[in-house]
C-alpha cells in the first residue's frame, strides 16, 4: 500500500507542476480527517466480521448535535465533549439492534440507515445549520508545536486502538470473533460484550469525526455523510483488512484512506473530470484486491505461507 501511495504521488508530481507543493499536501491531509477516523472504526467492525453502512449518516446526526451546541451556547469545550458522547450513544443504539437483536450487521445497519436519515430530516426540520460561529473552528484548527490538532487527535486515536488490539485481550478476542464467532463463544470469549463495545468504539470515533466536520465546514446539510460509509469500507478493504473478519491492519487503513484521497486530488489536478473519481475508486479496489487474490494463488506465495 505504501508503495502504491508513493507511486501515485510520483506519477502525479511528474504530470502536474502543482502537485508536489506543501499547500497541496495540506489539502489532501485535511480532506482525509473524517475518513481516517471513521475508517478506524470500520476497520475494527470489519475485522470482527461486522459492518456498518449507516456510519456516514450517524456522523450527520452527531454533527447536528455538535452544531446545535456551537450555535446555541458557543462553548467549544462542551461541543468537543458532546461529539464523542453522542456518537457513543448512537453506537449503543446500533449495537442494541445488531448485537442484542442478533441481526446480520449488513442488513440491520441498512435498516437503521433509513431510520437515521429520517431522524436527520426531522431534527433539521428542513433547514440547514449554516454559518455556525467559528469558536469550535478556532479551537480545532490551531497547531501545537507546528502540528495541527486534527493530526494529534488522529494519532492518539490510532495509538489507543493499536494498544487495545496488541496489548489487551480485546484485540485477540476481536480477531477470534472475526475468525469464527461460534468457536469464540465456545472458548469462553464474551462475544456479546466485545461486539457491543466495538460498535460503541466506532460510534465514538464517528463522533470525533463529526466534531472535526463541524469545525471545518461550519455547516450541516440534509445530505451530510451520505457517501462516507462506502468510501470508508473501500479504504479499509484496500488497506488489507479482511471483510470476512479475523484480519486487520490499522496502518493499512491509513494508507487506504490516503491513497483514495491522493488519487481523487491528483486526478483533478491533472485535469480528469470529477465524474471519473468513483470509477477510479472501483478500479483501484478491483485492481489491488484482484492482484492480491491472484498472486496468493501463485506457487511461490503458497510456499512462503507454508513456511511462515
Amino acid at each position: 500500500m505504501l508503495v502504491a501511495c508513493l507511486l501515485a504521488i510520483v506519477i502525479f508530481s511528474v504530470a502536474s507542476p502543482h502537485y508536489a507543493t506543501s499547500g497541496n499536501a495540506v489539502t489532501v491531509l485535511r480532506n482525509s480527517v473524517e475518513l481516517l477516523l471513521i475508517g478506524l472504526g470500520m476497520t475494527l467492525l470489519l475485522a470482527m466480521g461486522g459492518i456498518d453502512v449507516s456510519i456516514g449518516i450517524v456522523m450527520g446526526l452527531v454533527a447536528i448535535a455538535v452544531g446545535r451546541i456551537v450555535s446555541a451556547d458557543g462553548s467549544p469545550f462542551l461541543a468537543i465533549i458532546s461529539g464523542p458522547l453522542v456518537g457513543a450513544l448512537l453506537g449503543c443504539v446500533t449495537a442494541a439492534v445488531i448485537v442484542l437483536g442478533r441481526v446480520p450487521a449488513i442488513v440491520g445497519t441498512l435498516g437503521l440507515l433509513g431510520v437515521y436519515r429520517t431522524a436527520i430530516f426531522v431534527l433539521l426540520g428542513g433547514q440547514w445549520l449554516s454559518g455556525l460561529p467559528s469558536s469550535l473552528t478556532d479551537l480545532l484548527s490551531t497547531t501545537v508545536i507546528g502540528i495541527p490538532v486534527a493530526a494529534f487527535a488522529i494519532a492518539i486515536a490510532y495509538l489507543a486502538v493499536w494498544l487495545a488490539l496488541r496489548r489487551t485481550p480485546y484485540g485477540l478476542h476481536l480477531l477470534a470473533i472475526g475468525n469464527s464467532e461460534e468457536k469464540a463463544r465456545l472458548s469462553g470469549i464474551p462475544v456479546v460484550k466485545i461486539r457491543f463495545a466495538t460498535f460503541v468504539i466506532s460510534g465514538v470515533l464517528t463522533g470525533i469525526a463529526a466534531t472535526f466536520y463541524v469545525a471545518t465546514y461550519r455547516n450541516v446539510e440534509m445530505t451530510i455523510g451520505s457517501t462516507l460509509a462506502l468510501d470508508a469500507i473501500a479504504a479499509v478493504i484496500l488497506g488489507g483488512t479482511s471483510i470476512l473478519g479475523g484480519r486487520c491492519s490499522l496502518i493499512g487503513t491509513v494508507f487506504g484512506v490516503l491513497l483514495l484521497r491522493i488519487l481523487q486530488n491528483g486526478l483533478l489536478l491533472i485535469g480528469v473530470p470529477s465524474l471519473w473519481q468513483p470509477v477510479v475508486t472501483g478500479v483501484l479496489i478491483l485492481g489491488v484486491l484482484g492482484f492480491e487474490a491472484a498472486s496468493n494463488r501463485l506457487p511461490l506465495a503458497r510456499f512462503r505461507r507454508a513456511r511462515a
Binding site: 455547516n219 451530510i224 473530470p273 470529477s274
Partner: peptide, 8 residues
C-alpha cells in the same frame, strides 16, 4: 466539476 449533494 460535480460534487453531488454534499458540502464536503
Amino acid at each position: 466539476q460535480f460534487a453531488g449533494g454534499t458540502a464536503e
